Simulated scan of single mutants.
Amino acid sequence: MKVGIIAGGPEDLLPDLSAYVNDIDVWIGADRGAVVLLEKGLPIDYAIGDFDSIADPQRKSLETKAKVFRKYPSEKNETDLELAIIQAIELQPQSVYLFGATGGRLDHTLVNLQILLRFAEHDMDAAVVDRLNIVTLAQHGTHTIQNDRQYPYISFIPMTPTVTGLTLNNFYYPLTDQTITFGSTLCVSNKLTANCGTFSIDKGIVLIIKSRDA
């Protein structure tokens, strides 16, 4: 099973969601993200949030068209996106796509990227996707990475104070047993030199950001 979650980030940063329709089995709209599903005619399997900024006609449409509609108080400990993520984890999917989780408020963007750790704790693949970026997370071990012409640049950003033993093969700028730390720009804006490459980590956690220019 693959789950797609739409959060309430700026709509102009969303990728072409139609490209994911045949790949996603369950759609979850987090607050205004549910309105995006409604407006784009996509399935609304779950609509979750406080919906305090949603106009009454839209909210009533969501209540009617969503298979599951869950309204929470506006004052709560979790963000609407976190509530959607809790629901996604309960479904035990193979992988999860997060859309609308970047842009706008910087505090939201930063915490939404850190939320990838939640899925890693449950051994689930997850990606934050917007119009210019695909962000995933990797821990120790050797991993294969595919070349994507739509997102040609690849950066490795430490999510722990230190990442040791980072090795990159089939990259324009290869590395062998490198240590990177918070604030390092060594692994920003690399590229693959083949259809696929590998990277390995001895210890630590990194964000892998595939990106393209605007």
Rank of each mutant, 00 (worst) to 15 (best):
K67D: 02
D50F: 06
E82P: 13
R70P: 00
E82W: 04
T102E: 13
L98P: 05
T136Q: 07
S61I: 00
S95G: 07
T64L: 11
E75R: 14
R105Y: 01
I134F: 02
G100V: 01
D45L: 09
I86V: 14
D52K: 11
A120E: 14
I86A: 15
L116C: 01
V129E: 06
R149I: 10
A120H: 15
H122E: 15
I134R: 15
E63T: 10
G141D: 12
S74R: 11
Q58W: 08
Q94N: 12
T144A: 12
R131I: 04
D148H: 13
F99R: 04
S61E: 12
G100I: 00
V135C: 10
L117G: 15
H122Y: 14
R149P: 06
F119Y: 12
L137N: 05
R149Q: 14
R131C: 10
P152L: 05
V111L: 08
A126K: 09
T79I: 00
V96W: 10
I85W: 03
S95W: 09
D123R: 05
Y46G: 00
L91A: 02
D80W: 03
G103H: 07
G49Y: 05
H122R: 12
Q146L: 11
K60V: 04
T102M: 08
K71P: 00
A55Y: 04
L62P: 00
K71V: 02
E82I: 03
G104H: 08
A101P: 01
H122S: 13
N147K: 15
S74F: 01
S95Q: 07
I115D: 13
P57V: 07
H122V: 09
P73F: 03
L116W: 01
T142I: 05
T142K: 05
A127C: 05
N112L: 01
R131S: 10
D80T: 01
L113T: 11
I85D: 10
E78G: 01
A138V: 08
I48N: 03
R118Q: 13
L83E: 06
Y46A: 02
L62A: 00
V128N: 13
Y46E: 05
R118G: 06
F69T: 07
L83V: 09
K60Y: 08
P152F: 09
L110D: 01
L62C: 02
L110M: 11
S95L: 06
L81Q: 10
H108A: 11
L137W: 06
K76N: 06
V96F: 03
I54M: 03
A47V: 00
R105K: 13
I86G: 04
Q94G: 10
Y97N: 08
F119K: 01
M124P: 07
H140G: 09
P152C: 07
V128A: 15
S61D: 09
F69G: 04
I115L: 15
L110G: 12
R105F: 02
L117K: 15
S53Y: 08
Q87C: 10
E82F: 13
F99H: 07
F51N: 04
A66E: 04
F69E: 04
A138N: 03
Q146T: 15
E90H: 14
S74D: 06
D50P: 01
A126Q: 07
A88E: 04
A101S: 02
Q58I: 05
T109D: 11
G103R: 02
K67Q: 05
T64C: 04
K76E: 11
E75L: 07
M124H: 09
Q87Y: 02
G49F: 01
T102V: 10
A84V: 03
K67W: 03
I48V: 07
D45R: 00
H108T: 09
E90N: 08
